[in-house]
């Protein structure tokens, strides 16, 4: 549909006001809200993600598109019943205990929201128990952990051990990221995935929630 295509295109150029206006117009024209979300906003972000991976656009353009996406989402939200805003999945994210470096983690949050995930950001210096507590409460499918220091990396292992201990293994997937960690480290501590940057995190988490 032409209007949904225009929403997607406006989002791709980071035109915040245009996305908001077009989203309002779509609601007025009785377009199914779920379609506005999937075929307009998320479709646009998907193109952005692909273009970023192909080096055609840079991070700021992705973030601007994400901001435009939020503008559309804010208008769309009242169209859904409470807690029924469609989502690709619920992801609890945070920088692990002892570590206050949250730039990378924040980027992951922005990208995940842009891709259509519900993100519960616990911030920085997050105790292992807090990840579990919130994941349970929010019925999250994924816990994402970030660390910048080699000294705080072991806290990731603690979270994964707690996931097992609490019987969430298989139900809640874990993913790690940050400068000192690697795919090998993820495997070593039993994390389900490792992401090397924010866009890669979206791809990995998409894979995690789709897996049986």
């Amino acid at each position: 549909m032409d209007l949904l295509r225009r929403i997607s295109e406006a989002l791709q150029t980071g035109s915040i006001e245009k996305v908001a206006t077009l989203t309002k117009q779509a609601i007025e024209e009785k377009v199914v809200p779920r379609d506005i979300l999937d075929k307009g906003l998320i479709a646009g972000m998907s193109v952005i993600g692909d273009r970023y991976k192909k080096h055609e656009i840079f991070l700021p353009e992705v973030l601007l598109a994400a901001k435009a996406m939020y503008a559309g989402m804010d208008i769309l939200k009242p169209m859904f019943l409470k807690d029924e805003m469609p989502t690709l999945g619920r992801v609890v994210i945070g920088t692990v205990q002892g570590d206050i470096h949250d730039i990378g983690k924040n980027l992951v949050g922005i990208m995940l929201r842009g891709a259509g995930f519900r993100v519960i950001d616990l911030g920085k210096d997050v105790p292992p128990e807090r990840f579990i507590e919130v994941a349970k409460k929010e019925n999250a499918e994924v816990i994402g952990m970030s660390a910048l220091l080699t000294t705080t990396m072991p806290a990731m292992k603690k979270v994964i051990e707690l996931v097992k201990k609490e019987g969430l293994n298989g139900k809640v997937k874990t993913i790690i990221g940050g400068a000192p960690v690697s795919a090998e480290y993820a495997q070593h501590i039993g994390a389900d995935a490792y992401a090397y940057d924010s866009i890669n995190a979206v791809d990995c988490i998409r894979g995690l929630v789709q897996k049986p």
């Binding site: 080096h55 840079f58 991070l59 700021p60 973030l63 601007l64 901001k67 690697s182 090397y196 940057d197």
Partner: peptide
């Protein structure tokens, strides 16, 4: 990252080479 100042000067101030130059993290 998306400040107006960044948007205005990003590409004029910083040179971004094409894909021949490797700027990716190892992974």
């Amino acid at each position: 990252l998306i400040s107006e100042h960044t948007q205005k000067y990003l590409k004029a101030e910083l040179y971004f080479p094409g894909r021949v130059i490797d700027r990716a993290n190892r992974a």
